[in-house]
Nucleic acid binder design. Structure first.
Lengths: 317, 317
DNA sequence: TTGTAGGCGTTATCAA
DNA sequence: TTGATAACGCCTACAA
């Protein structure tokens, strides 16, 4: 008990015993067992982050931001990479509970409402990028629809008439919201939306490459393509260059995300910047506030996107 | 106790009570507390991974690989991002011990030998990319020297006579090993190594940009540059293009790492591929084997690099 | 087949 | 200022 008091700087201890104990601690290289402490305190200072793909710069940059803030607040991150699979999303959420995580940041685009609500009942949660109609759940979302409108108006402003859309997986709401932005903007400007101009990808670079071939083997050939994320946009560019299609002279391409790579490729990619650092920061801060039961908590945050114009888009020749 | 037996499928239980208990478990939504179990079992099934930068694709791809294997083996990853700072490397290593991590994968290029040995005494460890003279420590290293020789011989084979070297931070052994490869290869081919042709960067893209200006403001101007990592190589390319220096016609550039971006930039980057997926895989497997006390453990693994020729290098014009 | 006692390494509480 | 006791939720060992 005396040792405990000294380690935690609690209660009053005589200088003499403090010295003796500290000496022994050094000598024995004693380290307190935080797990045992957690058991008593009912607080582990673990925070679990569940996300689809840590190798995707979008998420790894988000995690880095969150991790830094967590560390400063004496929390440590448990990492769960789900590969976008529902079962693993659930597996890690369970693990967060079983292992007494104090809280969870859930980026689980495929999880069903019911499961999310269940988890929220068991453990303090911040839900990211997966809108749900439920006032009790803290959530951070991105205005995908408006972001897509931004992208489309940029292309339309450049006089493009045939604009293709490369969607992400259609079982994810973010993807559908962006598609809605595409369709509605076309309608707004009285431009026919033909099905041929929409292709479903799976967020991967390869699916961008594959999509290019489909776009260019059917009529009408687009003069601009709006890709639902940067990785697919890069795939489009890659394949276009292989086929000697010049960007932006022959084809304009706009992405979505603004991963750090976007500025580095050639030509630098015009894209819709998602505030991913901010997402990581806000998510972890929101969660920590929740854990410390601060009262003034905003529970539902919608972040804005920003159009970043680089060189992959231009007027049609 | 009966519940424990049922949850863990141990001992014999009558069908009747098993049913009743399982029912109650569902009803109460009971979840066993793994932390409490860890305390008794002296096994947490946590594995801590400490690394310099999770936002760097090199590490995030490594982690992804490790994470996947960990999950299949019922381990869960504790993540520590050190930003390359010594204090944080230590902080997280301590945390791994305090929190009863079963093991630690340490990518801590700046940590001193003594600290590493101390940690190894306290917790099963696999040390990555930080060679140390100590037979008791399991380590996975990359043959930086030979990798650098590979790069240099490629450039020399293209008839370059003035080859610049852009090193990483000189307080990291991997960086010095690559520099040694540069210097010794020059010697081997009787090419003078002048100090002016060596510049120290800090691994960042920006330091590549800055280095370009220094290389091109002093004599002799190099016809080829070997950059100690891809990020700096990309910085060189970026700045070269801004200055209307053509790659590879006017200047050849070779990198080191083969991050996924390397293939995507324009021109695609010639580089030395480090087997980072393999590193993640081997590191976690080595550690898990260690934890399960398999006997046939190789303790010191040296991985080979591979020259990937793309379009950023060529014969001098 | 089930249940009881004891202990894992801490901390809160109360007594000395 | 210090120390004894009980408790956190689980598992091992043994008893019923």
């Amino acid at each position: 008990m005396t040792v405990s008091r000294i380690v935690n700087n609690k209660g009053s201890i005589s200088e003499e015993t403090r010295k003796k104990v500290l000496e022994s601690i050094k000598e024995l290289d004693y380290k307190p067992n935080i797990l045992a402490r957690s058991l008593v305190m009912k607080e582990s200072r673990f925070i679990t982050i569940v996300l689809p793909d840590i190798a995707n710069p979008f998420f790894s940059e988000m995690v880095k931001e969150a991790e830094d803030i967590a560390r400063r607040n004496k929390y440590i991150i448990l990492l769960g990479d789900t590969e976008g699979r529902k079962e693993i999303e659930k597996e890690y959420s369970e693990a967060a509970i079983n292992r007494m995580s104090d809280g969870i940041i859930l980026v689980a685009p495929r999880m069903d409402d019911e499961s999310i609500i269940k988890i929220n009942d068991k453990i303090p949660m911040v839900l990211v990028d997966r809108p749900i109609e439920c006032k009790d759940i803290a959530q951070i979302n991105i205005d995908n629809f408006t972001g897509a409108v931004l992208a489309m108006e940029h292309l339309i402003g450049l006089d493009h008439k045939q604009i293709g859309f490369l969607s992400g997986s259609r079982d994810i709401s973010a993807s559908l919201e962006r598609e809605e932005g595409y369709v509605k903007t076309l309608k707004k400007y009285d431009m026919t939306s033909r099905n041929k101009l929409i292709i479903e990808g799976d967020w991967s670079l390869k699916s961008g490459r594959d999509a290019f071939d489909i776009f260019f083997s059917s009529q009408p050939v687009p003069t601009a393509i709006f890709a639902s994320n940067d990785l697919m946009a890069l795939g489009l560019i890659q394949r276009a260059q292989e086929m000697n299609i010049k960007i932006p002279e022959d084809l304009s391409i706009i992405g979505f995300d603004d991963i750090s790579m976007a500025a580095l490729v050639n030509p630098p990619l015009t894209t819709i910047r998602q505030p991913r650092l901010k997402m990581g920061k806000i998510a972890i801060e929101l969660l920590i506030n929740k854990l410390q039961k601060k009262s003034d908590i905003k529970n539902n945050i919608l972040l804005k996107n920003e159009l970043i114009i680089r060189n992959s888009t231009g007027k049609i020749a």
